[in-house]
Each structure stands twice: as C-alpha cells, then as structure tokens.
Design a protein around this nucleic acid. Sequence first.
DNA 1: GGTAGTCGTGGGAGCGCTCCCAATCCGGGA
DNA 2: TCCCGGATTGGGAGCGCTCCCACGACTACC
Lengths: 346, 346
Amino acid sequence: MKLTLEEIGRMAGVSRSTVSRVINNEKSVRPEVRQRVQDVINQTGFRPNAAARSLASNRTGVIGLVIPHRVHTLFDDPYFPLLIQGVSQASNTAEATLALFIFQTEAEERDLYPRLVGSGTVDGVIITATRMGDPLLTRLAGGDLPYVVVGRPDEAERVTYVDADNHGGSRAAALHLCNMGYRRIGYIGAPTSTTAGIDRRSGFLEGLAVCGATPTDDLMRDGDYTEESGYLAMRSLLSSRPEAVFVATDTMAVGALRALNEAQVSVPNDIGLMSFDGLPPSERSLPKLTTVRQPVTATGVRAVELLLGLVNGDIEGPIHEIMPTELVIRESCGAARLLETDLSND
Amino acid sequence: MKLTLEEIGRMAGVSRSTVSRVINNEKSVRPEVRQRVQDVINQTGFRPNAAARSLASNRTGVIGLVIPHRVHTLFDDPYFPLLIQGVSQASNTAEATLALFIFQTEAEERDLYPRLVGSGTVDGVIITATRMGDPLLTRLAGGDLPYVVVGRPDEAERVTYVDADNHGGSRAAALHLCNMGYRRIGYIGAPTSTTAGIDRRSGFLEGLAVCGATPTDDLMRDGDYTEESGYLAMRSLLSSRPEAVFVATDTMAVGALRALNEAQVSVPNDIGLMSFDGLPPSERSLPKLTTVRQPVTATGVRAVELLLGLVNGDIEGPIHEIMPTELVIRESCGAARLLETDLSND
DNA sequence: GGTAGTCGTGGGAGCGCTCCCAATCCGGGA
DNA sequence: TCCCGGATTGGGAGCGCTCCCACGACTACC
C-alpha cells in the first residue's frame, strides 16, 4: 500500500489538508486531532513524497556544495574533507539534503550551471572560491539562485561569503616570529591567484612591517598548496639562510620540513618554522608545527546557516563573515624551547 | 517567463509530448521536428523541472553516498576523500546527482533510513561498510531501495558489493617479505570488527603459511586505523625484535615509522616495513613505503555503475566485485637496497 | 480498392503535494 | 435571539512532468 497524505487522512479520519498541516507543523489544528494524525504517521512510518512536495512548494530541501575543478589539493590536504564535514553536519541538523558537486574538468564545470539552476534541483549552493575571476561565480552572480561563497571571492562586495581571517592570522604569525627574536623571516606563500594567498601574504607583510622588519624578495617563495611545492620552495629558500620561515599552509609546511630534514637543518634549533591552517598534519609532524588554526568545520557550518537564511528569506545578503583564527604554539617555532630555558621570556 | 514543456512546445509548434520525447531522446520523432525542438531548447536554455519529472516518473536521478558514523578516520585518512572523488566522478558522468550523508552520531544515522527511503529522495544508495552487524545494512536489506556496499559486508551473500582484494593483497605482501628473506615478520592489523581487518589478517597469515613461517602472538598487534594507533603498536612490537612488519594501512604505517624514528631504528636497514592502501601518505613518508595499492577511486566508480545498473534494472543483484590490488615496491621493505647491492637478486 | 499495420503526434489523466478559499462550528456581544 | 469573527477543517486547483491511448496519415499487402 502506497502511503499518501490522502491515505493517512483516511486512516486518521481527517482530510489531506489537515495531515499536511500536522506534518508542516502549522498551527490551527486542534491538539487532539494533531495527536491522532501524528499517531497514524508514527505507526505507519509515513514520509511525505519529496518530489511532490518540491513540485508544489517550489522548494527542494537540497543544498549543493560545489567544489570547482583545479582543486587538485582536494585529497592531498585535509581542508576540503573537513569543510565537507562541516557542511554535511549542518545540513543534517537542518534536515536538508547535501548534494555534492566535485569537478575534475572545466567541461564538467561548465555543464553544471544549467543543470543546477534551470531544473530547480537545489534551493541554493555553497561554492568554494579558488581562483580570481571564476566564471561559475560570475554566472551565479547573474542568476537568482541563492549562494554563499566559502573564502573571499574576487568581487566580494555584492556576495555573501564566509572566510577565515587569513590576513589577521598571518599578521599574528609574523608578529609571533618577530617577538621571538627572529629577524630574517622567510615566507612560502600560497598562489596569489587565490584570495587566500593574497590575504595571507599581505597579513604576513603587515606583521613584519609592524615590527620594523622588511622582507626582501630573496626570502619570499610561492607554493601551490601541495606538499611537494613546499618542499621545493624550502630547498630554494635555504641558500638565503632565513632564521625562520612562515609557510602559508600546513601541507606545504610538511614539505618544507622534509626539505629541512634532508638538509640536516634542525627545527627549531637551526631555523624556526610556522604554518597556517592548524589541520591534523601540523600536529603529526616532527617537530609539531606552530601554526595559525582556522576553524574549517565551523566555516562549513556557518556557510550552511547563511545559505538557509538566504533561501528562507530570513536574512538579506550580502553578508560577509570572517571566522577568527587562533595561534597554536607548538614546537617548530622554538617557543617551547625558549620557555624551557628562560621562563621569564614571554 | 517560466519555461515548461508546454511553453517550449508552443514555441516550436509542437505539443508537450513531442518536446518530452526529444528531451528524453526517444525515437519516433521526425528528425526535422526533433531539430526544431532542440533549437528552441538550446536557445532558451530550457531544463525540465526535476521535481515534476521525479513525481511523474518515480525516479529522482539522485544517488546517495552514506558514510556511517564511527568513521573517525574520515579525515585522518585519504581513503574516504578518494572514495568520494570516485563516486562523484562517476555520478557526474552518468548525470546523476550525488547526495552525501555523513553521520557523526548514532542518532543521526537512525534518522536517516526513514528520510531516505519513505520520501523517495534517492534512487539508491552506496553505503560504506564499517563494522560487523551494521543496523543500517540490516534495514536496507529488509527494504526495497537498491543499494551497493563498498567493502565486504557482514552478510555478503545476498548483497551487491565492491571490495578491494584485501586477502590477496595482504597475502602478496607477506610473500614479498618472506621472499626477501625476512623470517620474524610482525603484523599491525586493522580492527577485526571490520571485514577489511579480518581479510587483511587472514591474507597475511596465509601468505606466511605458504612460505612456512608461522607468526607468534607476540608479533601480532592491532590498531584502529589511526596514525596514533600505529605508533603505539609499533612501540609495543619493538621489544619482540621483528625483522620486518606488515602494517594493514598506510596511515598506521606512518605512525609506525614515527615510532621507529624515535627508537632510532632505521628502515629498511634495521627493519623492513610494508603497508596496505597505497595512498598519498605512503609516498610522502621517509623512507617511502612499500605498499599494497588498492584502487580506491575506481572502487567508487564501480560502485556507482553497479548501483545505476541495479536501479535501471540492467543488472540483477547480488553481484560481488573484487578490485585487484597491486604491489608497489618502494624503499621501506629493503628491496630497493637489495637490488642495488645484488642485481642478481629478484 | 480495402484492410492492416506502422509511424508520428496530440492530449487526457494522473503523480502527491501545497496553497487558497469556502464551509462549518463556536462563543460573545448587541 | 441573531449576527459577526476567529478557529478549524475540507476540497478544488494546480505545480510540470511522464505514461498511455487515440487519432490521422502512410505504406504494404492481398
């Protein structure tokens, strides 16, 4: 027997409409009737048909998470898994269904937009911003599908987004290294074709400026988010003899550490090291990395909340939300060692 | 202007039905008419409404990927990300939408089944098997929603599943270590509450038996898939002085390596090491791990293909598919070294 | 030339909901 | 006693598709 509102109504002695009211938790149903209907629903395990509901209400209860192509780092870096976890968690809480769109090629990505928008498969999307001038973002901006960007997008003003405090976190990292007495501080950055790369770099430079240090070009390198690129950058950086290096991601820092190991340069005895992200790899390395932790899972959760707010009309965009970062002092910067030998040092 | 089949039909001078036939690529439409309709569709960018389609056809074009709770290793191990990637990729190819269900708690998981089944949100699900006697699996077996299990489930006979050749791969690993002359071979296993743990263990033991070695209990340890557990297991194993150790996952092997580093035991000079999985961490360690590679992404792809086959009625379950593993010889087992010093040795 | 198919097409009848309006019931105030 | 308004409830009218049957135009065959 296929269950429908009508059928449940018959069993409870009410109409389809009343059952609908009970299910959607609308007022104006007498408590006793509500109870009677609810009992039948519980007994039968009835669930309203999602397609019919969508068709009639023009809402699907599905939100999309879009991860553009060119994110080769997807599975080289725990960032995306953690983000997915946050988004998934918040979706479950809100009883929304999470649709995941991961693209390997530009073509797949191009096909997405029509698939997403015209057909009304999703109520809205969360899209991770990767590079400047993402065409998908442009199309989204032109359409009327609600969306939230994770990471500061290129044209940020008119867009609702959630981002980590990349600038502030990197600034704090630079200050920390300065305060520890390091002067020649190197930098291994993320690509400046991404806003995260730009912001972390500018934060780092600002931090140095605050303590009166100016970095020279020979102390600056760029990586591409991969472990290997961190390894290569550090190899190249070594000849400039930095006293400390700030690496813009944990994963690249792990690569940098590998280069230092190979070169028999001891961390933190011979060189101080800091990274950004605060993901598991930073804690698993030897020595453990001093890092700037960004709340990745929380970012995902917040993105869902904002998106649902937008979809429901509870909030009005654009909203910009910056998630705070946190300095996590472990071994690689040498602070632990300093504390041991000189407790007066802060 | 809201586009509908009717509207497109009017623009092309045909009926709703004909437009539907064109969209669904059914025969019996005159080529010229088909072209005319297709042109209008292309011009307008029309996409049929997914909800209406689902309601009428009783098919959603959505498949679910269920990752049960208790998978703490989700983001500690690249396995799940890679699996997700494979599933996503295959879904895109098939123009199916991927819905992701990741659970943190048992309660969330319990709520899923009704949400999934009654409402017809998905056409079928892929579920990763984690532990023996998973209640979700039991319910799925009782219902009539098509599903495919990734990993050998508890009650495998009646269920369609895709699994890596855990037994064969581990057997090959044991044989490889034997062939290299190691005799006291230790084992750090995955939990035997999972079928992967069971199969890898049995394969390892069978491999040893084949070459006449018998492991004693003091050479066997169990981990729980985490890096930390591998670290602890290896620490405990060291006192038994194994000549080589086979670790049932890369991640645990990385932990084991850390323990060996700390104990100043050189790999592969003082001890041989092998692992299972062949994921990125195995290549990034120092020394690089000799490992048994399982095709994770391909497993995800295959799972989608099987599921869609089941959904479309193209294939009839249950089907059991075992994905082959591959021995990847790198540095940690000592084979590289042997080859260098004695080229006659195979 | 008539009778059967065959092909291409149109349109009715839902799919199971939500939305909205009308109908009913009840109590309070005139 | 009668009228009015609010609280409840029922049911019609779609939402935009797919499915299926019917119809007209041909073709083929006897």
